[in-house]
Amino acid sequence: MSSNALITMRDIKKVFYTDEVETHALSGIHVDISQGEYVAISGPSGCGKSTLLSILGLLDSPTGGEYVLNGTPVQSLDANQRARIRNREIGFIFQAFNLIGDLSVFENVELPLTYRDNMNKGERRDRAMEALERVGMAHRVKHFPGQLSGGQQQRVAVARALVGKPSILLADEPTGNLDSKNGEAVMTLLDELHKSGSTICMVTHDMRYAEFAARKIFMFDGRVVDEETLHRLRTEEDQRLRQSLAIA
């Protein structure tokens, strides 16, 4: 475990049980993410990267293993404790933006702060405006999500993730619902945030965007692999698939 590690995961396992089938989504993951790092998690569909991100974001619990976030072991916290840590330590950026349609841009951004005790309205306003200015959306505070383009919505979602000054931003396919131009813009924004000191962990299946990150983690079949191994495993899998089709 490195001395400035923000996140330390040891032997993280996740098993889903459906009827009599046991699916190992994560099989002994070891991950460290340091303060200020920009990490991209890549891999084919179904490799477990979103499951890993959910566990990183305390939206889900591992079946086994140890997870320490900012010095706190979090695998055995109750729902309310996890919510409090999510609110203070983690900022989420979703593929589908997930802005609340009935709230204005300002209210959406202010929302995480409303779940904090002892923060007055003035402070909330200042921090929300600051976050909106960082993403270049301060001029749209009274708009509602339905009145914004996809790129604008995602920038507002980034502002919402930033407003609580979290330890880490978790981005799940942040460009998945955007065209290439808006996708590029969002990636540039994340890059700027990283350069200004933010820790970012992004899940993406698009290798072009993974290149924005300083470190890449490759996953295959619930395990972390290096890039070379990933390539080999994918080739082997393709061959197996072709053979089974030929037999059929």
Binding site: A83, R86, R88, F92, L99, L111, Y115, R116
Partner: peptide, 8 residues
Amino acid sequence: VRMAIGAG
């Protein structure tokens, strides 16, 4: 969404 961003 609210829970993801910290609502208990």
